[in-house]
Structure formats: structure tokens, C-alpha cells
Design a protein around this nucleic acid. Structure first.
Lengths: 144, 144
DNA sequence: TATTGTTATACTCTATAACTATA
DNA sequence: TATAGTTATAGAGTATAACAATA
């Protein structure tokens, strides 16, 4: 299992996965993918809030956001309640891109899990989520 | 589940995991870890064969191998059967480092899985392995 | 001519710090 | 003074090409 985690987090494996996922979507690659999908997940937000949500640095987030903006997938609008802030939001093209990416991921997972006994997929997903959380937030004590 | 995979492969998550794993072991970091553990897994081997085994480029493998050699964790010896080749092998310190890393990983996993129902861990590990394999080798048809 | 190991080069990603504008 | 956004700079990682030695 440690080997599986090692392989899963290996550069080549990740690169292969995200290259396949994003190959059909113009303007998105393995680096900008988290920004796009994160923005879809939490909705329109400032760069700082988005950066926190996806575990990325503010500076990296804003730079990749610029790339996505140049590709026409997200838009910047001034925040009405704070003149310092800028609200990031998906454009119509951006939402289409998110849908395409989600479809690609889900079709891959569905194909992979087709042979699993019913119910195991749900259990697996739950475990994977918890394990990932434990990895991402090691300090959070899990005494549930 | 897609979100969990996304989070798991996110840079920050990986970096956090490997930083914690390798923090107690001198000379190993997130980049040299695959080389060290791969060499332990397949045994003494040439750089080319090791590179194939861990899904890394030859040039990267040999450079990181040099780092590990400088740290005293692996050794280079001429291949008796081929004067072009160099055999990489763990030193005694290298084997100790591998053990320490494995202990760190297993203690983390054990802690995390302590609350899981018996048997689920094994099922989970099996699924994770298959999923990872599918990600790493997309062309291999899985008609088993 | 092909392969092994290695080094050199350029490119991308990441992190730190600095800058501007506003609170 | 602090915060949001952004840009600049430097460092680390990666990939491609090139090299010498041997098959």
C-alpha cells in the first residue's frame, strides 16, 4: 500500500493523469487545473480565499488565474464591497471546461470501478477522503 | 472522490507527506526518496533499469543517485558483466534509512487505519493498487 | 551503430520578497 | 499599520540534447 501511495504521488503518474484529463480542454493543464476546479467548487471568490481553499500560494494562484483569464476561462471583476479585492469567477467557457474535465475524470473512474462489487466504491471513496485529509491536515486530531 | 484524488496529488499535500516522512533521515528528501526506495525494492541495479522501475528519467535518476551517494546512502560499483554499466546498491546506512522511512510511513498508516473495520484496510489497499496501476499504465487492458 | 552513464542547456514551477492601492 | 492583488527575483526541478566510453 505504501508502494501504491508512492506510485500515485510520483511525478510521472500524476503528469500522465492530468495530461490525459486536460488534453481535450484548451487553456488548462496540470498546473492550472486546481485553480479552475477549485473556483468551481467554492464559487466566485477572491484570489486569497481561493488560494486557501486549494492549498496554494496566493502568488501562484493569481498567476495561474491570469493564464486562465487569457484563455477566456475565468473573469476578474472588482469586488463591490472592497475596492482592494478582485472577484474571480468562471466564464461560460470556463464552466464548459470544468464539465468536460469532470466528465473525463468520472468516465475514467467509472471504467475502473466497473468490476468492483457494489458498495465497495463508496467505502473506498470514503476511506480515500479521510486518508487524504489526514495527509493534508496532519495536526487535526481525528478522535471521532 | 475526484476531489480526494485531486487533493492527494496536490503539490502541497505531497510535499507535506514526504517532508514529514523524510524529515528524520539525513540526505533524503521528496525528490531522492523514489530513487532510494526503488533501489531497495528491486535490489542492486543499473541506473537505466532503476529509472524504468520508478518511472523517472535516466538523467534525473543518475543525478539524484549522485546526491544519495554523497550522503553515503548508496554506492556505485562497476558492473562485472558490462564495462559500460554501473551498479547502484544501498550501503548499510542506506538500508537503515529505508527502514526508518518505511517505519515512518507504516506508523502513519497504522494510526490512520486503526479505527477501520478489520478487512477493510486490505480491500482498500488492493483497490488503491489497482487504481494506481490503471493511472500509471493506461494502455494495459484490465480484462481480468 | 546502439547503449550506458553522465553532463550541459534551456525551460518550467515554486517561494520570497517587494511594490501599489485600499482598508 | 494591515490587507489584497500583483509583479520581480532567485532557486529548485525537469526535460532535451549532447558527450565519452563501451558493446
Amino acid at each position: 500500500m505504501a508502494a501504491a501511495i508512492g506510485a500515485l504521488t510520483l511525478r510521472a503518474t500524476r503528469a500522465g493523469l492530468y495530461d490525459r484529463l486536460t488534453s481535450g480542454v484548451e487553456g488548462v493543464d496540470a498546473t492550472t487545473y486546481p485553480v479552475l476546479s477549485g473556483l468551481d467548487r467554492i464559487g466566485p471568490a477572491t484570489a486569497t480565499r481561493l488560494a486557501e481553499a486549494i492549498g496554494m500560494d496566493r502568488t501562484v494562484t493569481t498567476r495561474y488565474a491570469t493564464r486562465l483569464q487569457e484563455a477566456g476561462l475565468i473573469a476578474r471583476r472588482p469586488d463591490p464591497s472592497d475596492a482592494r479585492a478582485t472577484r474571480l469567477a468562471l466564464t461560460a467557457d470556463g464552466e464548459r471546461a470544468v464539465l468536460a474535465l469532470r466528465d473525463a475524470m468520472q468516465s475514467f473512474l467509472a471504467e475502473e470501478m466497473a468490476t468492483w462489487p457494489p458498495g465497495e466504491a463508496a467505502t473506498f471513496a470514503l476511506h480515500l477522503e479521510r486518508l487524504t485529509e489526514a495527509l493534508a491536515y496532519p495536526d487535526t486530531s481525528r478522535t471521532s
